[in-house]
Computed example of a mutant assay.
Amino acid sequence: MSDALLDAVKNGIMSVDLGRQLRVGMPQSPNHPQFWHTLPRRHGDMVRADGGSAANDMITTGTHVGTHIDALAHVSQDGLLYGGADAGQSCLGGKYVEHGVHTIEPMIRRGVLLDAAGFLGQEVLDGGYEITVEDLQGCLAAQHVELREGDVVLIRSGWGRKFDEGTAYVGAESGVPGISEAGAQWLAEQRIHAAGADSIAFERLAPGGGHSALPAHRVFLVENGIYIIEALDLEELARQRTFEFTFVLVPLNIYGATGSPVRPLALVAA
């Protein structure tokens, strides 16, 4: 019996890597532990009698560093998580049992890129710029795509081009472009499954405001059970003008964690 998915793979699949390479010193939110990678054993530290040698690694990292996904346990509002779960009681033995990242099923879904920067005729949106509902709707119309229930929506502000600049990407003084509470509410009404962006905190950060207010996180994670993916690399998708694709993402199966580093892929027929 023919398998349509296997047939598609046989006919050729092109993938676009949407994840950032994990490197010591890369920019990140100041609220999370840094990524660190070292080699406890290098070639030559121990050599077997046959001349063979092996190297190995040790990694320490926060779960919200680099390209990563927020589990529903990541944010609470007035002591409650998504679905009215008590944020305190949901943490058992130091693990968020009810809404931890281990509860996120692997994503193989329709993905939609909203190239807000491209739609607005800019390479990079200004720090602190609010991507409005009108911007999102105009972008959809210009790209000739529509949102459907269960989609994963990725929003490009162009801010990802600043990733290698480090401090500039964090945008503490300049602010960071992104959607606000209004944009999050509108996207939630479309019943999407997850949303992502090329910036450090997904949503708009006001100049000089840092991470002091994150209303889109509340709308998505607490009120609607919509996952958030941050620090995506969306430049190649935008360059190719690939606005619709198969989106693949699998979080690390860390029991009770509030998030996980990820390496998402956009797949299209070759």
Score class of each variant (00 low, 15 high):
residue 166 G to V: 04
residue 190 Q to V: 07
residue 168 A to L: 12
residue 174 S to H: 05
residue 183 G to L: 07
residue 166 G to R: 10
residue 181 E to R: 12
residue 157 S to Y: 10
residue 184 A to Y: 10
residue 176 V to E: 02
residue 159 W to G: 02
residue 170 V to H: 07
residue 178 G to L: 04
residue 171 G to L: 11
residue 190 Q to C: 07
residue 159 W to Y: 10
residue 182 A to C: 01
residue 162 K to Y: 13
residue 159 W to D: 09
residue 156 R to L: 08
residue 167 T to C: 01
residue 179 I to Y: 05
residue 163 F to H: 06
residue 184 A to N: 13
residue 188 A to M: 12
residue 169 Y to K: 08
residue 166 G to H: 11
residue 178 G to K: 03
residue 154 L to C: 00
residue 173 E to F: 04
residue 182 A to N: 12
residue 193 H to Y: 12
residue 166 G to E: 09
residue 163 F to M: 08
residue 160 G to F: 00
residue 185 Q to A: 15
residue 159 W to V: 06
residue 168 A to P: 00
residue 189 E to A: 15
residue 180 S to H: 04
residue 156 R to T: 05
residue 154 L to R: 00
residue 183 G to F: 03
residue 192 I to V: 12
residue 170 V to C: 13
residue 170 V to N: 04
residue 189 E to F: 03
residue 192 I to N: 07
residue 167 T to F: 12
residue 162 K to S: 15
residue 177 P to V: 10
residue 175 G to Y: 01
residue 165 E to D: 13
residue 186 W to A: 08
residue 187 L to Y: 03
residue 163 F to S: 05
residue 166 G to W: 08
residue 193 H to E: 05
residue 166 G to I: 10
residue 189 E to Q: 15
residue 182 A to R: 04
residue 192 I to D: 01
residue 191 R to V: 05
residue 181 E to Y: 04
residue 176 V to C: 03
residue 189 E to V: 03
residue 191 R to L: 07
residue 168 A to C: 05
residue 177 P to H: 11
residue 180 S to W: 05
residue 158 G to W: 02
residue 173 E to V: 06
residue 154 L to P: 01
residue 183 G to A: 03
residue 193 H to P: 00
residue 166 G to D: 09
residue 177 P to L: 15
residue 178 G to Y: 04
residue 162 K to G: 06
residue 167 T to N: 12
residue 184 A to L: 06
residue 160 G to W: 07
residue 181 E to C: 06
residue 184 A to T: 05
residue 182 A to Q: 15
residue 162 K to C: 11
residue 171 G to H: 09
residue 191 R to F: 00
residue 157 S to E: 13
residue 175 G to D: 05
residue 186 W to Y: 09
residue 162 K to W: 05
residue 170 V to Q: 10
residue 158 G to P: 02
residue 179 I to E: 03
residue 169 Y to N: 09
residue 188 A to W: 12
residue 178 G to Q: 07
residue 164 D to E: 15
residue 162 K to T: 13
residue 172 A to M: 11
residue 178 G to C: 09
residue 186 W to L: 09
residue 193 H to Q: 13
residue 171 G to T: 03
residue 181 E to N: 02
residue 161 R to S: 03
residue 174 S to N: 11
residue 155 I to M: 09
residue 159 W to A: 10
residue 189 E to I: 01
residue 176 V to K: 01
residue 178 G to E: 02
residue 174 S to G: 09
residue 172 A to D: 14
